[in-house]
Write a protein that binds this DNA or RNA. Sequence first.
DNA 1: GAAAATTTCGCAAACGTTTTCGTATTTAAA
DNA 2: TTTAAATACGAAAACGTTTGCGAAATTTTC
Lengths: 356, 356
Amino acid sequence: MIRIFNDFYTNKPKIVMNNGISLKELAAELNLAPSTVSRALNDSYEISEATKKKVISMAEKLNYQPNPFARSLRENKSKTIAVIIPERINYFFSQVIDGIEEITSEHGYHLLVYSTHEDVEKEKKILSLLQNGRADAIVMSVSSQTSDVSHLKRLHDRGLPILFFDRICSEIPTTKFITNDYESAFEGTKHLIQQGCKKIAFLMLSKELSITKERHRGYVDALKMSGMEPEPAFSLHCCHSDEDNTQLIWELLLSSNRPDGILSSVEKLALATYQAVKKTNLSIPDDLKIISFSNMSIAGLLNPSLTTITQPAETIGEECAKLLIKKLTKPRQPDLLNQVITIPSKITIRESTLVR
Amino acid sequence: MIRIFNDFYTNKPKIVMNNGISLKELAAELNLAPSTVSRALNDSYEISEATKKKVISMAEKLNYQPNPFARSLRENKSKTIAVIIPERINYFFSQVIDGIEEITSEHGYHLLVYSTHEDVEKEKKILSLLQNGRADAIVMSVSSQTSDVSHLKRLHDRGLPILFFDRICSEIPTTKFITNDYESAFEGTKHLIQQGCKKIAFLMLSKELSITKERHRGYVDALKMSGMEPEPAFSLHCCHSDEDNTQLIWELLLSSNRPDGILSSVEKLALATYQAVKKTNLSIPDDLKIISFSNMSIAGLLNPSLTTITQPAETIGEECAKLLIKKLTKPRQPDLLNQVITIPSKITIRESTLVR
DNA sequence: GAAAATTTCGCAAACGTTTTCGTATTTAAA
DNA sequence: TTTAAATACGAAAACGTTTGCGAAATTTTC
């Protein structure tokens, strides 16, 4: 369907895409003022029930759809939330977004989703694009390259609600949702020790990340509690490339002083370990036991099945969204509190840490 | 930072969130008309180089960010593309979106991402929300429940560019990107036959889906070419729930006339099969061989590793995006052609179809 | 040196809403 | 019957852009 309008200046007919009827046209159809129609549709007390009825039925008949940009311009809010994650092909982040959408969609909010691909420059660019009010709030997990946080701080200083989860940014005074990183890493390491591991390595993405700091602290403390001394070479610093990581871990496994246990702080490094092990004649769990933070639903189908520390990803997403919705929809809400909310993970023991 | 404005009617100061400086304010700062500043920033030929310089430097100094909604309202375009997928926790769809974002972000487009969770009612709701121009185009893969397509047709009739991939909708005359579903299924089935399978089952989500139709056709033709007759009970119709699917497949595996080979038309059903097999005393590939459409990067790490038909997911996303960007940014583009573009998959043979 | 053409900029309309205020009409109170 | 209050609606401003047109100022042409 195509509609013809007369251009204001040229007065020549022009063809435009049919974005439906406008409030003004709807009002004309009803012989009412636009203001009245607007109020009627927004269920204002100033409008009689009779005209409300008429307006609503005509709006439905003509399939009136309010223009979101006119509304955003006027109201100075977009009904949109930006979600920024470091990678998209990731069970955890996908589940978190599912949780967020579950809540936000109920309240008519839309989700702009961006992936930084672990690249802080992309992250900066995305945040820069978000300066203009395109989104009413941001919920994000920082990239592994993020150490300078001025680009985050700027948005926060502008008054844009920003909320962190998983990989949080302690410098920004706002609410953050995480799992019990320290305790889970501590318990995971303890589990490896109980299974007889003597030389436990820790796999991490970047030393700057909140999750590696906390999880590493748990790892170190668990070692110390058992009288072990954390060996620096056993804290392996990996990167974004799966191939490079596999290579790094492979080299670690072939070193004369190779570990017999691994705590992987993120899922992808556990998978890289599996790939690396395939290239050796070592075997899991006999020669090497491994436990990993991971939200794979199919950890049980791996060869061997992987002992995991699973985050309540969907719940984390839901809680983020609930908080934001409250902040955005209720009147006179204070700024997001500077607090860290912890939701515990669950350890599932499988073959990869078995003693046999 | 907080800014104080005087309200027009009450003339009382009011506190607003700082969304930055406006074009008008920037113009005032420069002693220029807003129109001049606008043209200068848009590099119009009507503006002298000298003032362009001045305007640009002042804009940078004051960190001017154009309001996207004012622009969208005026231009009647949003610089936003909606992506609708049936599920988010899925390697294939995540990769496709990565491919889309790769291209669109370069052109300043934003991505609204929605998941239908395989629910056609959710799909309808999402498309209804997209009637008002919030997105300039839609790229989507339909839900497994989608058979009536009037909600898609309506948007297409309005002139909104809509583009399908993977699970396409033949009723809508527009461009679709798929993989060579028929040939891949044919080859996959042939591979099972070559590996000695005599009774091959076909796992599918919904009979309505384009991919099940095509893949099933390939499966049937491969059987027939080898003189086998497709058994109706071996075309197993599954659903969205992993638990239910595992149960269904488990029952199939325990039936007196159980299959010795499986072609799974989607990844999740292969995983459900693995789960089901774990609950039997059957073993893959000795008692049952399986090949599946799947974009899991870790198919090789499963127990046993899974023979896969892998779609060029990221390429599909990129091609979708390229086409849309062309349509949206070049002047006087025709409607999207009613065509199906096929990008072939790749079969990777692993242990799950091994003869030993 | 006058006319014509070009360069450079400003005015104001328009996009589609929401909301303040004014006002006519009806209802309630005195 | 007057007056006050309540009800129901309209006029117009405002959000922040872009752009057609008009019009000075300058440069070019003859």
